[in-house]
Simulated assay, not measured.
Amino acid sequence: MNMIALMGLIGFLGFLGFYTGNFGYFGFFGFFVFFTYALKKYDELFDTYVKKAATTAFFTSVVLFCAALCAVVLLGDPALIPTLFTLVFVFSVMVFILRLIIYEMVENIRSREE
């Protein structure tokens, strides 16, 4: 089994939105997309793609967290912290997913050409 599919379990946190009435939890349903990797063969090439996508997402989050902290300090409004940090987290996960999808699409295109 492809271990990245286990990230899909985080999607079950979205059901807390129904229980608590906080609609912010519904964003966790986006993690269900990782269950699509359960049947994908985990080989060295896919491992490399995951590492490349994770590296890009990590450095994106570091830069954006620094920018968010600077924005909070410059604006002097600590109430922005939860919103900005949520946006940084969402953007970082989106970068990871999109980079992984792009790597897989390029692999599929190359395999068809051969």
Rank of each mutant, 00 (worst) to 15 (best):
F18P: 07
F58M: 14
T60L: 12
F58E: 13
L16S: 06
K51L: 11
G17I: 00
E44I: 03
F46K: 12
F15C: 13
I109N: 01
M3F: 09
F59I: 08
F28G: 11
L6C: 09
E107M: 12
I101F: 09
K41E: 05
D47C: 12
I102M: 01
K51Q: 09
F26K: 08
F58R: 10
S61D: 13
F58S: 15
T55R: 08
N2V: 06
G21L: 00
E44L: 07
F32R: 04
I4T: 02
F59P: 03
I102V: 05
F35D: 11
L80P: 05
V50R: 03
G76N: 06
C66V: 15
A68K: 02
F34I: 14
K51C: 10
F59T: 11
V73T: 10
T60H: 01
F96Q: 01
V88S: 08
M1S: 04
L64G: 13
L13E: 00
I10N: 01
G21P: 00
R112Q: 06
Y37C: 08
C70R: 15
T48Y: 11
N108P: 07
C66M: 11
L75M: 14
L64H: 12
K40D: 12
F58V: 09
V95Q: 06
K41Y: 07
V72H: 04
L39Q: 14
C66P: 09
L69F: 12
D47S: 15
M94V: 11
T83D: 10
A38Q: 11
I101L: 14
N108M: 10
Y25D: 05
T56E: 11
C66H: 10
I101V: 15
K40V: 12
S92W: 01
N22V: 06
F12P: 04
I97T: 05
